[in-house]
Design a protein around this nucleic acid. Structure first.
Lengths: 171, 171
DNA sequence: TCCACTATTTAGGGTTCCCAAATAAAAATA
DNA sequence: TATTTTTATTTGGGAACCCTAAATAGTGGA
């Protein structure tokens, strides 16, 4: 399942996907203003996407995603959200997180996205979630772990070692 | 400090940077084989980079990075390493981590890279570093945190809360 | 019907990269 | 040094992608 589509095509699909969430189907004008390009550019792209069976497009009528197109639109959108969430989680400012998500949503291998998704879930669902983040924030500020090497840590660590089956920890 | 260079130009700078680490200066042939392109393509690019004062290039002589070019080459390479480290840390297979790093090393905002770098440092230097990773691995496998809600955890969490100044935790 | 809005076609442009073939220069070797 | 081999450069072209302005055509509401 190699990369067929240009990233720009994916942008269009994502745009249509998002527009469709609001209004049964997208019009050229909608897409044009969503992506900040001229209508003629949209029409050109729609033809391409239509040829690739990613949208159903008939002149002067409507544009809707085919199942294949919707799948891609959804995936790209999902990646966007995942990446943005991850970046925000590690304190990248929202605006930048969003911009960077726009870029890399197109580029990453499945495995990579999957792991980022896992990481986000991991941190979010951790029993000490808000804590982890606070901890990280402090680390960003002063480069140090704040609760290093005290007794309770060791107790805790050893208790986990036991749980997950590590035998010898060298502190 | 906006983006001037194409990602491909950055690839060339990174290539030259890496070649220079071995052999005072890079030759057309070296770059050509490093990037898997024909010599004529290299020459063309070298001219462009020379015009932009990113390399010093005289025909039939040598190619070296200018300070400006070296700075970029180093930055891109550094990003590559950072991103790859991050991806490997979250269990993306090495090959894929490397490929994806190749792509996104060009694209991200400074702030984003900075935070990824911080994250890697944070995890690596954590007192319970290998543990964190093991923990994450398990989570990837079964989607659950393995040491949830036991007493020792709570003790640990509260101890950290105290340290970083959180008042009321709702378990 | 006529206007205003939207969509489409046409024709063209720009960027970025790449390559093959011919040529030229440099290096190696006889 | 002369010749061969290796490397570099120039020239000319091309493909992929995306975008636009201007002219034209279609659609729906007043």
């Amino acid at each position: 399942m190699d990369k067929i589509l240009s990233r720009r095509s994916e942008d269009y699909l994502e745009a249509i996907f998002n527009i469709q969430k609001e209004k049964k189907y997208a019009r050229v004008k909608d897409i044009s203003s969503y992506l900040n390009v001229r209508p003629s550019s949209v029409v050109e792209m729609l033809k391409r996407l239509n040829d690739n069976r990613l949208v159903t497009y008939r002149r002067h009528e409507y544009v809707v995603l085919t199942p294949a197109g919707e799948k891609i639109g959804r995936i790209i959108n999902d990646r966007h959200i995942t990446i943005r969430e991850f970046l925000e989680m590690i304190n990248v400012p929202r605006r930048i997180a969003d911009l960077d998500a726009c870029i890399i949503e197109h580029e990453l291998h499945l495995e990579t996205i999957e792991q980022i998704k896992n990481l986000v879930k991991f941190v979010k669902s951790a029993p000490n979630h808000p804590n982890w983040l606070k901890h990280f924030e402090r680390f960003c500020e002063n480069g140090k772990h704040e609760c290093k090497e005290n007794k309770k840590d060791k107790t805790y660590l050893l208790s986990i070692d036991r749980e997950i089956g590590i035998k010898n920890r060298s502190f």
